[in-house]
Amino acid sequence: MNNKINKITLANLGRDNPVFVQILGICSTLAVTNVLKNTVVMSIGLVFVTALSNVTVSILRKQIPTRIRMMVTTMIIASYVILVDIVLKAYLPDVSRQLGPYVGLIITNCIIMGRAEAFALNNKPFISFVDGMSSGIGYTYVLLIIAFFRELMGSGTVWGFTVLGSWWVKWSIMVMAPGAFFMLAVFIWIVKGVIIKDPEEVK
């Protein structure tokens, strides 16, 4: 059991990483990574939703009729996302105002649907929880790295504090969506070229 947990976690963080290997959840990768703070809140929301929706789907997996499983999973995911939205509005109003419509967009993040469909429907609740959690964390650290560089180069700040002085010419493109495409591409290039080499491609 422990072995399985380790294996799943490692795979989700590295070789099967949802962002740079499976290329899922790209929409939100582009949208929220221009400022580090937004990225953190978005990621916490995503980890929470992925883990809990995976558990719920897994508990119900034997009852859910196969033909309507997508409807049911969407329904479950949407409920958790609305829950996150309400909690943010009530307890962290400033963050909620900053994120605006992005919280609602967690629903459309393919990672959650993907994990529910590919993993939770065939596995037991606890291991599904681990899978959802580690997928979320795999997504989180990639986004944090991208957000760090985008905020630094685009606004000269880190977590809202000015790091680069007035001598730094801000790269406006970094704070716009295209900047994220460049960053993500560079990231994938480095990771795939240096860290995880695909044996078939290397030869």
Binding site: V72, I86, V87
Partner: peptide, 25 residues
């Protein structure tokens, strides 16, 4: 029936959370 009941359960749960935090929001 399954879809109806699961929707019902989740909507009721969310409504409670909403009512509970409404004054705060």
């Amino acid at each position: 029936v399954f879809m109806f009941s699961i929707t019902f359960v989740f909507v009721v749960l969310l409504s409670f959370v909403h009512l509970y935090t409404k004054s705060r929001v």
